[in-house]
Amino acid sequence: MLRGGLVLSGALLSVGIAALALVAAEPSVPATAEARAAPPTKPTGNRIFLTKPQLEEAIASGTLDRPVRSLLSVKAPLQFGDYSWDDRGVAAGPTWIRIDLGSQLMSVFRGGDEIGTAVIVYGGDNKETPAGKLHILGKAQDHRSSLYDAEMPYTLRLTDDGVSIHASSVRWGAATHGCIGVPLPFAQRLFGAARVGDEVVIVGTPPHKVGQRPA
């Protein structure tokens, strides 16, 4: 009697889970052409979706200054010249850039989702990169520095005195004169994604230098 009841309950459980799976799988198949063409609301790809406690802790600790929904899943530490870019399924939204000088990383966000990250090079000891909240003041795809007589492709100018984000040779131990150098393919993608006026948050320098351009 007992045996029959357990077998019956197991069978019912199996049938229930299978039915649930079939019901849940139904909406994933678009019924019409419009539904098939509509972009998904949730970004795809290899991502890490932040939980509410994770986000609260990140904002409380100052790691993030605004809500973020997902980060790119980077399995191994990036090497100099490495980058990751994946904006599949990410809905349109304001683009903003987070630059961490301490960890030598840049993260590009579209709305609440990270769409790109790369290792950067930044200003040396005598030409420090300014920290704080900046905005993209201008874009120049084929910029050539008149001061240094050097090619600076895909330049996103941040300050009036020329501090910019641009393609550069990202290698260990390198420094710039205050600009932020990123790998060329990454700079190309960033140039296409960013617009004039987008926000750039630079962190990782002492607090007394935040928002100030070093002399």
């Binding site: 100099f80 993260s107 240094y148 131990g173």
Partner: peptide, 26 residues
């Protein structure tokens, strides 16, 4: 934590005194 996730992908902090300039004066 988010900081740990970002630190995991970082190549580390830049060493001091081992910097080479990318560009030279005109």
């Amino acid at each position: 934590t988010v900081a740990a996730m970002l630190a995991h992908r970082s190549p580390g902090q830049r060493p001091e005194g081992a910097l080479a300039s990318l560009k030279q004066k005109r």
